[in-house]
Amino acid sequence: MTVLLEVRGVRKRFGSQVVVDSVDLEVSAGEAVGLIGSNGAGKSTLFSIIAGTISADDGSIFLEGRKLPNRADERARRGIARTFQIVQLFGGLSVLDHLLVALQAHNGEAGVFRDLRGNGATTVPEMTLCMETLELCGIAKLAHAQTTMLSLGQRRTVELARALVARPKLLLTDEPSSGLDESESLRLAHILNSVRRSTGVAVVIVEHDLATVAAVAERVVALDAGRVIANGTFDEVIANVDVRRSWLGEASA
């Protein structure tokens, strides 16, 4: 399989604390990777560095062999999409509008000049793609709903749909099951899997909930104190002694 994302020696420190310490990570096209680790292990920081919202002190990141630009919006247009640990939706916009923003921005087809030429209305292909994505995530009925009225599970699904609408190559999803109960997290995992099957997007998922990780990830990478301590299948990583000590809190044998 071809390598999609390549993270080489990324380091980040906040003050005196090294949060991400020389992390190497490879993700193949279409692969689903789980990222686990205790709180403060550097998972979310690594995510933000890949997405471009935080800049790394050292190291480099490649997408399909090409170095990524610096800013988050440029990276998004190159094909990296993400969801957030604390759901970030656009207040005042309908669900459909959320998808339109992401789609038009990604294609570079939104902006002052398009509007001033009088082409501000949504085109048919744009509309079709948005509705397809909503269908895929199972929330087509909510297209015209205001997001403030939705449940947390629905809000997370909207965030997912917004991330997927422009058909990214890589989806970063940060604790999608946080705050959801068992059945809701399973449902979200199910949506993730079906989306991956039909669009071929590679997924990196940060998650504490073992059931969700097991359901989504083909490969699991464990972080501790900013370093990769294990990398392999779910069962291998969970059986790893270091992982059991740092993450599951078991005394070392």
Partner: peptide, 8 residues
């Protein structure tokens, strides 16, 4: 304990 790892 929302969003915390098992050890936390």
């Amino acid at each position: 304990v929302i969003g915390l790892s098992p050890v936390a």
